[in-house]
Amino acid sequence: MVLIFLAGEALIRVYWLLGGRWGYTACDRTHVVHPSDGCGAAQVAELPFWSGWGALGLCVLLAGVVLWKPPAVVLWTVAAGLATAAFPLHLLFEIPAGLAGRPTDWRDVTARLALLAGAVLFARLAPRPARGPSAYRPVAPWVRRSAYVAVAIPLVGWALPHALWALDVPFGISGAELDDIQRNLSLGSALAITAVPPVAGLLALGLAQRWGQQFPRWVPVVGDRSVPRLLALVPAGAVAIALIAYGGLSTGVLVRSLLDGSRNWSDVVDGWAVVLTLVVFVGWGAALAVTAVGYHRATRAPSAS
């Protein structure tokens, strides 16, 4: 199945390199904004390197990795890389918004879901170590505290201000920005954007609770069995990296715009709540990363004496 996934990714890249644009999205690369048709993909004459030759070469390289039958750590590293490239946090916003009727780039959604599917396939290819009886290993107190922080940050720093904006409360933004939100945000999209991040953030609690190490008894088939460590660690690590990277890169873009004069400090002051969301992403990712490290330390196999 992994080779089929890689062959499919390679074939679509060859098709794009030959001039076809079916399934390709040009969002953020042209001035045409039509999400349903890939943001003007047909107008892109020269394919970006990592959408064409770069991705094709990577597919060939990964196929060689699979045929080499590498150790589990290599396969899990590839799986984590694919999951990070998919940027699943973006899907948490894009899919609910699209289902609620907001114009959505479904080509981008499909490409991200394909990367996630590839990550799952590579993870499944990794050999599983023999596991003994399920046993809960309590995490350190600092891990619990970081897990609570990872839950609180998206709730307070994201859901609360977005809920206020949806209710027409100008919390930390200008009146013009609030009018723009009210004009372009449907009720379904507002509910999805407000509710999904804190609900996703609750999963961080699993890294500090029993149910993150042992499936609850009421879960069909796997009840009372041990949760595979990497099943918790890989998504947590990928999301933490994505959050920190997104927040850091966005902060860099903001700083650069202030330095080159394309944005004024008065704009930052007027929209301080929007700027603060960049800190929210970095803080959320950092708290999740710390919690994942604590989970790893608590659940790793004891060293032989």
Score class of each variant (00 low, 15 high):
Phe122Ala: 11
Asp267Glu: 15
Leu178Met: 08
Arg229Lys: 12
Val60Asp: 00
Ala240Pro: 07
Glu94Ser: 13
Leu113Val: 13
Gly81Ala: 09
Trp158Gly: 02
Ala147Cys: 11
Ala159Phe: 01
Val120Leu: 11
Leu231Glu: 08
Cys59Pro: 03
Leu121Asn: 05
Leu125Arg: 00
Ala287Asn: 10
Asp37Ile: 15
Leu75Tyr: 02
Pro70Gln: 10
Pro70Lys: 04
Ala85Pro: 02
Leu116Asp: 03
Ala86Glu: 15
Ala200Val: 13
Leu75Phe: 08
Arg210Glu: 15
Gln209Pro: 00
Pro88Gln: 03
Tyr15Ser: 04
Arg225Met: 09
Leu62Gln: 02
Val156Asn: 04
Gln182Phe: 00
Glu177Arg: 15
Val139Tyr: 06
Lys69Met: 05
Trp165Gly: 06
Leu58Cys: 09
Asp37Cys: 11
Ala55Lys: 14
Trp265Ile: 04
Leu288Lys: 02
Ala200Arg: 00
His162Glu: 06
Val280Asp: 13
Trp16Arg: 09
Ile4Lys: 09
Val269Asp: 07
Tyr246Ser: 11
Leu125Lys: 06
Ala190Asn: 07
Arg102Thr: 12
Arg107Pro: 00
Pro198Asp: 01
Leu125His: 08
Gly188Asp: 06
Ala292Ile: 03
Phe87Gly: 04
Gly98Val: 04
Pro161Ile: 06
Val253His: 06
Gly247Cys: 11
Ala238Tyr: 14
Arg210Phe: 05
Arg183Lys: 03
Arg124Leu: 15
Gly57Arg: 05
Ala26Ile: 15
Leu11Asn: 01
Phe281Pro: 07
Ala240Ile: 01
Thr30Asn: 08
Trp106Arg: 04
His31Trp: 15
Gly38Cys: 14
Leu167Lys: 06
Pro127Ala: 14
Ala41Glu: 02
Lys69His: 13
Ala245Arg: 04
Phe5Trp: 14
His31Cys: 09
Gly294Thr: 01
Pro127Asp: 10
Ala238Gln: 14
Gln209Gly: 00
Val139Ile: 13
Gly237Tyr: 10
Val149Trp: 08
Leu11Tyr: 14
Arg145Asn: 09
Asp270Gly: 08
Ala45Gly: 10
Trp53Asn: 00
Gly201Ile: 00
Leu276Tyr: 10
Val279Asn: 00
Arg263Gln: 11
Ser134Arg: 10
Trp165Asn: 04
Thr194Asp: 01
